[in-house]
């Protein structure tokens, strides 16, 4: 009766080859997800940072409108380019400072 050892040896080598290929694939997938995460973060950071810096943030505009409505007499003045980058009303008044909001008696 022939010994089954060579067959078992081949099967073991095949299994090892498959496991190595799978490990490579897993590593590549993880690397891809990592790269995607970093790319998404940088893109989001740049978009939010630049939009806020150049005063295109509707959030900062909303803050000024909310301030104007809250006071009844206040009106949001020219948007400060560096004012809020999308702050809440409580922090916007701090960061924008009084000079960025003009007041007018109704």
């Amino acid at each position: 009766m022939p010994t089954p050892q060579p067959l078992a040896h081949d099967a073991s080598r095949e299994l090892q080859r498959r496991l190595r290929a799978r490990a490579r694939r897993v590593k590549a997938l993880r690397r891809r997800v990592g790269a995607l995460t970093v790319a998404l973060f940088l893109a989001a950071w740049a978009s939010i940072g630049l939009a806020g810096a150049f005063g295109h943030s509707s959030a900062s505009t909303n803050v000024q409108l909310a301030l104007a409505q809250a006071s009844g007499r206040r009106r949001a003045g020219s948007a400060s380019a560096t004012s809020t980058a999308g702050r809440s009303s409580s922090t916007a008044s701090t960061s924008a400072g009084p000079t960025s909001i003009t007041t007018r008696q109704s």
Binding site: T37, A53, A85, G86
Partner: peptide, 26 residues
């Protein structure tokens, strides 16, 4: 101007960007 604004709001922008990324990845 840009550097000042980004510098002042560095952590705020980082948090917002990370929030966007967390939503997309989740």
């Amino acid at each position: 101007m840009l550097a000042t604004s980004v510098g002042t709001h560095f952590f705020w922008i980082t948090s917002r960007a990370a929030g966007v990324v967390a939503l997309l990845l989740a």
